[in-house]
Design a protein around this nucleic acid. Structure first.
Lengths: 365, 365
DNA sequence: ATGAAAGCGCTAACAT
DNA sequence: ATGTTAGCGCTTTCAT
């Protein structure tokens, strides 16, 4: 069963009685070839079961028709759906897709990039795990086209796709306020970034809103939360923020349980992403609370199950598959030589209403 | 910003004042080299920011340290989790992971395999979409190590990983019977395979149980269902089988709705996989039924949300990540030259009890 | 221990 | 239109 040697162009050429160049031209679909020789070559290739060796081709052309994808964690539905979009665009064009996990660590990301560059990928799609420490990305981008997904990096002018998290979160929280909610809890991982304490972040949002460069989606969503409060003159109560320490459901659950234990707790919870939502659901379940009777819930990022559990969970849905498609499309354009200025594509979100938010008051009065 | 040429071994050798052979030996970690030259080369490589070109190396060694994975659909949690296991084993060993979708069509699978072989992957992990029509797989396996996941193929003697679906399903249905259920509905996609009608399949299960070769997991689970009925002397009622026509939640939902509409419907539903479960949940939700008061439910394959919705869904959990790890490990062994007989690894399932099954009677009496 | 030289399988100049 | 000849960047004889 061991490795039967594959036929090469030389084998085909010999059998067809032509030069390797001619065989190559026919098989590779470049240059000229007459119908007669053409048939000979094709026949010979067929007989020998010839399959081109992309490696050899790539070595000389300098293109592998393979792109790399660095995900935080492929098993999360967020990345899995994006990946599907990427692969849908890539496969019809004959591009391969090499995937790696960064596990949201800079070391993992660097390791991934090393692997991908050694394999000579034509381009990279990645969701950077650090929006500031990005020397390795800055270096990569000098030799390889790159598209960022979900997050952006400060001072790194490359194509990116994502959604307008600030606006979406603000709209969502404004709606909660309009529906009568006054104590709105937020569940988010707000660990990294230049702000050690939330207060200074809030101050910055208020004093110098445009001075904030690239920040994590979680922070952006929190920014929207703050803005909505300010716009509606609802005072912020930071004790309503469930600030999760690590990106895990267990930690989220524990943090939310603590928040729910407070005497004057929130009437609604707003979760910053899918994982936060799962942890929050666990906490709500453990406490035996019913949605929306005991507590309301809105989630950033839509998940499959939200539509088929009673009563269904309201969510802000990101077009994950489309994001993947857009990223792949932009990357292929760059690989094809497009050299315009960096594009920051923002895709529209979906506002899914399913009845997980209790209306305490009608807005207009 | 365009493509700054990468330093090659020749560049490093020149700068270090040695031959390309010596530079190669140091950088590639093969052959002999004295400490002195060694340092010179390393220094030069460092200065130039040398990165090896795996392509060139692979062309000559014949190994790419890349493996291919053909999934049905990467965005499904089933494959996403398996993929994670695969990548966990691969990354530390410096292997790349090239993924493709077959979309459960033979054409897609062939296309995937073509792409992967042209990229000269060292091995392939795949979940075959047809357990019979597999000439292309038989051909592939002559040149490339392969590990099958989830499903097996008739007359294809290669390594595989999966679970014992028949036994797991039988145990599950036996339990339902022991708990007093007499009308057990099953939701499964039972379209392909040699059986056009369920009756003849049932006959075969009963008359010649070992004569059944490789069949789809869905059929295996149905086989377990039949066996449990036979073992407990509970007559089969085929009107309780929701036989879904296509692998989609919408179709599943419609089919289950029809089943639930019957006057003498099931007291419990057993779903054959994650997608069937989702469609079933939609139908249950649409009908406004409560679990387990109005209807009980057990699912094959565990999904994230099953643990945090009230009351939680009972499930048979497959060790998806472990399956991926096992597949990757076996594949790497084969690539490393292991030449023993094909191994068919069966991993144990988990029996998750969460209260979605109503106990109608206690078994012992 | 090191270097010279010959490829791996293919494409790209350059002739003809 | 076809063949000849050089490589792509690396590893691997084979000398020395």
């Amino acid at each position: 069963m061991v490795t039967k040697r594959q036929a090469t162009i030389a084998d085909v050429a010999r059998r067809a009685g032509v030069s390797t160049a001619t065989a190559g031209r026919v098989l590779g679909g470049y240059g000229y070839s007459s119908g007669e020789k053409r048939d000979l070559v094709l026949k010979a290739a067929e007989d020998l079961g010839y399959r081109p060796n992309q490696l050899a081709r790539s070595l000389i052309t300098g293109r592998t028709r393979t792109i790399g994808f660095v995900a935080g964690d492929i098993q999360s539905p967020f990345f899995a759906k994006i990946l599907r979009g990427v692969s849908d665009v890539l496969e019809p064009k004959g591009f391969g897709l090499l995937i790696t996990n960064s596990d949201e660590t800079v070391e993992g990301e660097m390791e991934s990039i090393r692997l991908l560059s050694e394999k000579q990928v034509d381009g990279v799609i990645l969701s950077p795990c650090d929006v500031e420490e990005a020397a390795h990305l800055r270096k990569l981008v000098q030799t390889t086209p790159m598209v960022l997904i979900d997050r952006q990096v400060a001072d790194l002018d490359v194509d990116s796709v994502g959604v307008d998290s600030v606006a979406a979160a603000e709209a969502c929280v404004r709606r909660l306020i309009a529906e009568g909610h006054r104590r709105i809890g937020m569940v988010a991982e707000l660990q990294f970034g230049p702000w050690t304490d939330i207060e200074s972040f809030v101050r910055m949002v208020r004093t110098n809103p445009d001075g904030i460069g690239a920040i994590y989606p979680s922070w952006q969503r929190f920014m929207g939360y703050v803005r909505a409060h300010d716009a509606c003159d609802l005072p912020l109560d930071l004790s309503l923020i469930a600030r999760v320490n690590s990106y895990s459901t267990e930690d989220t659950k524990a943090t939310v349980l603590r928040l729910l234990g407070h005497p004057d707790g929130p009437s609604v919870l707003f979760t910053a992403d899918g994982l936060m939502t799962e942890g929050t659901m666990m906490a709500i379940f453990e406490r035996g609370l019913r949605i929306p009777d005991d507590i309301s819930l809105v989630a950033f990022d839509d998940l499959d199950w939200m539509s088929f559990i009673g009563p269904g969970i309201d969510s802000i849905g990101q077009p994950r598959r489309k994001m993947g498609e857009a990223a792949a499309r932009m990357l292929i354009e760059r690989i094809g030589g497009f050299d315009g200025p960096p594009r920051r594509e923002k895709l529209p979100v979906r506002d899914n209403r399913r009845g997980s938010v209790c209306v305490l008051a009608t807005g207009r009065d």
